[in-house]
Design a binder for these strands. Structure first.
Ligand SMILES: [Mn+2]
Ligand SMILES: [Mn+2]
Ligand SMILES: [Zn+2]
Ligand SMILES: [Zn+2]
Lengths: 135, 135
DNA sequence: TTCTTGAGTTGTAATCATTACAAGATTGGC
DNA sequence: GCCAATCTTGTAATGATTACAACTCAAGAA
């Protein structure tokens, strides 16, 4: 996806595609390691010297509202961000801090839909432990 | 469970059962609505006027380390706490803010164990949406 | 019992992620 | 081009959590 395509996509999703928002979205497309706001800001400011951290927060919150991005709160102290694409779970290694994607079996998610009388807008499966590399 | 029984239980789990720790644990036993540190502190200080909020944090972190309490980070900005009893998931209503327990089908959790090469020490399933009462 | 020592508690200060807010910039429709 | 609405920016405020150092407590040795 190039800049125009991202703009079109965001527009479809009800997000006005400003320059900054396109850059933030693009960043998440190219950086799948669940970056923090700080990560995003420190990298993007190289390209956009006038960028404000508040704009990163604002953009992400708009994306979340419109359902194109998900916030990952697996880490009690800072949020991580990820595109809302195919459903997957997240595993955080307590040693190296990395957050891995994993695909829980379809059943895990399908069964979660079974709750009656509750409107579900977001589902997250978080695992913690020690990753393969760190054992 | 009375005070002595809680003390015995904590001792078994490797936690020295101080007066304050017993009170915090007892609070979690009697208040299953996933309280915040603030909730715990504001209620317990009525009984223990010398209590420090730091002690609440310290006690909870000790409990978590020893596996008798779980931290719930479904809410990006403040932690909630819950005894580590039978496995269950948490649903947060975005309207009233309440956090509900629910029992995902056994399979959901069992399948999560299937990750190879990773040591798993904690699993959390979080749903968000609107609860029955608030629709 | 008294002493000693390590662990637990307390209060305050520091940290740091996130939001609030107001002023300035931008954009799209008239 | 002009206007109103929206977006961006910088700074200040908020608030949860941790750091730290002094104090207290409890258990074991002498
Ligand atoms: Mn992911
Ligand atoms: Mn619960
Ligand atoms: Zn690791
Ligand atoms: Zn509700």
């Amino acid at each position: 996806m190039n800049t125009d395509q991202i703009g079109g996509f965001l527009h479809e999703k009800g997000v006005k595609p400003s320059f900054q928002r396109i850059k933030v979205y693009e960043y998440l497309m190219n950086n799948k390691e669940h970056p923090t706001v700080e990560n995003i800001y420190r990298d993007l400011i190289k390209e956009i010297p006038t960028l404000s951290k508040t704009t990163v927060y604002n953009s992400l919150n708009t994306f979340i509202e419109k359902g194109v991005v998900q916030a990952i709160s697996i880490d009690g102290n800072e949020m991580r961000y990820d595109l809302y694409e195919r459903r997957h779970g997240h595993f955080k290694c307590e040693v190296c801090g990395r957050i891995y994607d994993f695909l829980p079996p379809k059943e895990a998610y399908e069964e979660l839909e079974a709750l009656e009388g509750f409107l579900i807008t977001d589902r997250q499966i978080y695992l913690k432990g020690v990753c393969k590399n760190c054992r």
